[in-house]
Amino acid sequence: MKNISDEEIIKLILKNNRKSQKAFAVILDRYSERLYWHVRKIVISHDDADDVVQNTFIKVFRSLHLFRGDSRFYTWLYRIGTNEALSFLQKKKQHQSEDIDDHIVALAGTLQSDEYFDGDDIQQKLQQAIAQLPHKQRVVFNMKYFDDMKYTDMAEILETSVGALKASYHHAVKKIEAYIQNEGSEN
């Protein structure tokens, strides 16, 4: 099934027979790792990313019949994953009565002691700088900076115009450069 397109695999899954499980396993094999890293950069913690990714795939499986093929499957999957991650942070905010962005700043501050963070000092500083951004701008920055995603794909996923995304990324870069510069001069 490795050479079959996503759309063909979805048709197999929707037949709802013995092969459906195998077909969905191919989707998981193709996208679980990529989606995990995308979500992980949004929620920071491994355990939270694990919850969000599992929920995303379960939702995708249960609502595959609603996928009309207007957009590519992977942009549809990323849209659901991004929305799940942001909703997850929103729920955390309600439980912990703090702002989403404050929560992320606090998490980024603990990365040095995180078992599943391999970055050095400058990489940690970059994560702290990214954490200062408003959460939607943070998502845009991560997708462009780390994944080098095309603006057209990002526009499909985030349902925004390419122009707005370019402006958002430009502002994010400026803020991050200023943050790192200030941190460097303080130390």
Partner: peptide, 23 residues
């Protein structure tokens, strides 16, 4: 990418998801 995941995490993740959507 500065983040890491536990060893064999992705195999486990796929199995966990498949178990939850098992017909």
């Amino acid at each position: 990418n500065p983040f890491a995941a536990p060893p064999n995490y992705f195999e486990g993740l796929q199995n966990d998801v498949l178990a939850q959507v098992s017909p």
